[in-house]
Design a protein around this nucleic acid. Structure first.
Length: 470
DNA sequence: TGAAATGTTGGGGCG
DNA sequence: ACGCCCCAACATTTC
């Protein structure tokens, strides 16, 4: 007797391994693997440009590992699913949960619609170590501080890895007329900008597993310390893979656990847990992308400085470590973690520009753009998050540059016009004697900007503004 | 997962 | 030998 057709709906789980919903679907019948591009340009949560590029490549990779059987649709997800189930006689639909507020709303409406037409639908946890509702304080309320959250989560232990992926038997239901080619989704921008991005990255499950392997076999050995130095590429570089679920956090967690137990591995697990905490926060605070978690920040006098925002975005602030970071973001779709903190601190605490403007730019440019992490991290930096950096913690881009990029490898890589400026002045070119600048071919205000604001003064103003919030 | 301002200490130069 | 000053080095406080 032929097996019944079942649907696995791929969303942010673009992988075959450790995929609980997919495994369940494969066990249940003949597989129709689908992806639905259901985005409307008017959506406030519409994917950023870099994310779309990643998705484009990741879908191609996924389709390849499914022997070209991935069916791609465009349009309202509920309509697409209902029509597909109807056409192909599907009685069972499987997916892994998403946790963004708009996705939760969409999915619960779909769940209801499918159930009421008698179609069984089951969702799984495919992207988090801990379900956000499972970790609570003794009084049942959600944690607001990372450390106690992590302690409790640790006690529970992470979700177990899904074993035993059976080889799928694909449904031979005729392709739906609605199915479209991945390229027809037009996820790539018209400009050639995306081609430079993908000189630095490879999307898809096998690239993700390879990145994990590389990290586990070497990168992690010095992780705790060297992760702070942007010139050393010793972070895991797993973030975009994790965002799209090309790899699960369980796979990362367990692979590193296999290497043993030391300070570096502990530290990395803690970073995975920060990702979890972001999802935890957005689940319990759906407004986190747009609303200060600390309401008193609603009175903060953010400055509407379009020109200054633009200088920051383009890496033309006159502070080399800031500009290097912003240019790294534009050129590679990525920015080193420490530098993210520096540029964010500079925007919010020196320029006094709204963190939401910074978050929006990151959202558009980052290949690893993730609503939960992006929102939670910007609120953390701005000081308006629940467990946030204290407002007075303001990074000094000169000191930080000298400390974390002492030999200037990172900064010079992204700011070639400062290539020949000696280390001594690299992070403070305005202090360099004229002849040093001339010899290095630097002309301030011409081929590299003068500092756009005074650090000491802007810091003082921000601290004043903060004090007035109390 | 800060930095600046302020305070304290102790060694060395010097009269 | 002693007091004095200077200042680096470190510690503490404040934002």
């Amino acid at each position: 007797m032929p097996k019944k057709n079942v649907v696995h709906w791929f969303r942010q789980d673009l992988r075959l391994s450790d995929n609980p919903a997919l495994s369940a679907a494969i066990k249940a019948g003949s597989l129709i693997p689908i992806f639905i591009w259901d985005e409307d340009d008017k959506d406030t949560h519409a994917l950023g440009a870099a994310s779309r590029v990643w998705l484009h490549h990741s879908l191609h990779a996924l389709n390849q590992s499914l022997s070209g059987k991935l069916r791609v649709f465009q349009g309202d997800a509920k309509t697409v699913l209902q029509q597909l189930c109807d056409e192909a006689g599907v009685q069972k639909v499987y997916w892994n949960r998403c946790y963004e507020p708009h996705a939760i709303a969409r999915d619960s409406a779909i769940k209801q619609a499918l159930s009421s037409s008698g179609i069984q639908n089951t969702s799984f946890n495919g992207s988090l170590l801990w379900e956000p509702w499972e970790i609570t304080k003794a009084d049942g309320l959600p944690y607001k501080i990372f450390t106690p959250f992590y302690r409790m989560a640790h006690l529970k232990g992470p979700r177990r890895h899904t074993l035993n992926l059976l080889a799928p038997s694909f449904s031979n239901a005729p392709p739906s007329r609605q199915a479209v080619d991945i390229d027809a989704l037009a996820l790539l921008p018209k400009l050639k900008w995306h081609e430079t991005l993908f000189q630095h990255w490879q999307a898809g499950e096998s690239a993700a597993l390879q990145a994990l392997e590389t990290f586990a076999q070497g990168g992690v050995d010095t992780y705790s310390i060297s992760r702070d130095f942007p010139a050393q590429n010793t972070t895991s570089r797993l973030s975009p893979h994790l965002h799209w679920g090309e790899i699960s956090p369980q796979q990362a967690w367990e692979r590193l656990q296999f290497e043993g137990d030391n300070e570096n591995i502990e530290h990395f697990k803690r970073e995975l847990a920060w990702r979890e905490f972001s999802y935890y926060l957005i689940y319990h605070n759906p407004d986190i992308p747009s609303k200060n978690l600390k309401p008193r920040f609603d009175r903060f006098p953010w400055r509407q400085q379009t020109a200054q925002l633009k200088s920051w975005q383009c890496g033309q602030t006159g502070y080399p470590i800031i500009d290097a970071g912003m240019r790294e973001l534009w050129q590679t779709g990525h920015m080193h973690n420490r530098v993210r903190m520096l540029v964010a601190s500079f925007l919010v605490k020196n320029l006094m520009i709204d963190w939401r403007d910074g978050a929006a730019w990151f959202w558009d440019c980052l290949l690893d753009a993730d609503l939960a992490s992006n929102s939670a991290s910007w609120q953390w930096v701005a000081g308006c998050g629940s467990d946030a950096a204290p407002y007075f913690r303001i990074f000094n881009p000169v000191t930080q540059g000298e400390k974390f990029d002492a030999n200037g490898h990172y900064t010079r890589r992204f700011i070639p016009e400062l290539e020949r400026l000696p280390d001594r002045y690299l992070f403070r070119p305005w202090e360099a004697p004229t002849e040093v600048l001339t010899q290095a071919g630097v002309c301030l205000g011409d081929n590299y900007p003068r500092p756009m604001i005074d650090l000491k003064q802007s810091r003082g103003e921000a601290l004043e503004a903060f004090k007035r919030l109390d």
